[in-house]
Amino acid sequence: MGVTLDDAARRFLAAFEEVTGVDGRDCLVTEGGDRLVIVVETGGMSDAIGPGGRTVKRFEERVDAQVRLVEDADDPEEFVANTFAPAAVYNVTISENTDVVAYVEVAEGDRGIAIGTNGRTITAARRLAARHFDIDDIQLT
């Protein structure tokens, strides 16, 4: 499934790839453009972060925005779990009744991390799951 990016997202991904040397697969830009969620190629997370986080920090400084990285995956369950990192995800089950819903079992102590400040993490997870795997909703269990 292809992801359509707007001009701003394409510019951010080009800058990300230039700074990190890692292929970016998708980019969500929040309103105001001060926060980015970038989907990184499978296996590219450590290179994108860099030693001590230096590489991703250099990218954040270049684009003047906070950046959250998500590792890509071919499997929808694995991809959904990756969108919640660093929260401990025990299980992801996808139900395909009327709507396609991913039920995500998260450690009780990590529910706040999975939801994120003002719901940012779960909102980004829902958007990414819809864009990459046609998942209509994500519910935490």
Rank of each mutant, 00 (worst) to 15 (best):
R62H: 13
A129T: 02
A130C: 00
G32M: 08
T121E: 10
A130D: 01
E61W: 06
A85P: 00
E31W: 05
A14R: 08
D47H: 14
I38E: 08
V104Q: 01
L69M: 10
D137F: 01
S95E: 15
T20R: 03
P86C: 14
T93R: 15
V70S: 04
E96Q: 13
D136V: 05
V100A: 10
V3E: 01
G44M: 12
D7F: 08
D47T: 14
G32D: 09
S95M: 11
T30F: 06
D72Q: 10
V56P: 02
A81F: 05
R25M: 12
V39A: 07
D47K: 15
E17R: 03
A130Q: 08
D75N: 12
E31L: 05
L28S: 02
N97F: 06
V106I: 15
E78T: 14
N91I: 00
T98H: 11
R10Q: 11
V22A: 06
T98I: 11
M45E: 13
E18F: 05
A14C: 01
D75H: 02
L69V: 08
F84R: 03
T83F: 03
Q139R: 15
R25T: 00
T98F: 11
D72R: 04
T93H: 10
N82S: 06
T141K: 12
E71A: 13
V63H: 07
A114D: 05
K57V: 07
L69T: 07
V92N: 07
N97R: 15
V92F: 04
D137K: 06
D137A: 13
N82L: 02
D136Y: 02
G112R: 06
T30S: 13
I94T: 09
A88F: 11
V56E: 03
A124V: 02
R62W: 10
V101F: 09
D99R: 13
D74R: 14
A48Y: 08
V70Q: 04
G50C: 08
A8C: 00
Q66R: 14
V100W: 00
R54E: 14
G43Y: 09
F84P: 01
D64K: 15
S95C: 05
V56C: 03
G24F: 06
E108H: 11
A114H: 05
V3K: 08
A87F: 08
A88I: 14
A88G: 03
G109W: 03
T4G: 02
R131S: 08
D64Q: 14
M45C: 12
G2K: 13
A107M: 10
A107D: 15
V56F: 03
G24Y: 07
I115H: 09
T121H: 04
V67L: 09
T98P: 00
V19R: 05
V80D: 09
V92P: 06
M1G: 14
C27L: 01
F59S: 09
T93L: 11
A107H: 15
E60V: 00
Q66D: 12
D134Y: 03
D74K: 12
K57W: 01
T123R: 13
V40C: 11
E71F: 11
C27R: 02
A85C: 01
F84Y: 11
D47V: 14
R58K: 13
D47G: 13
A8F: 07
A129L: 01
V89Y: 02
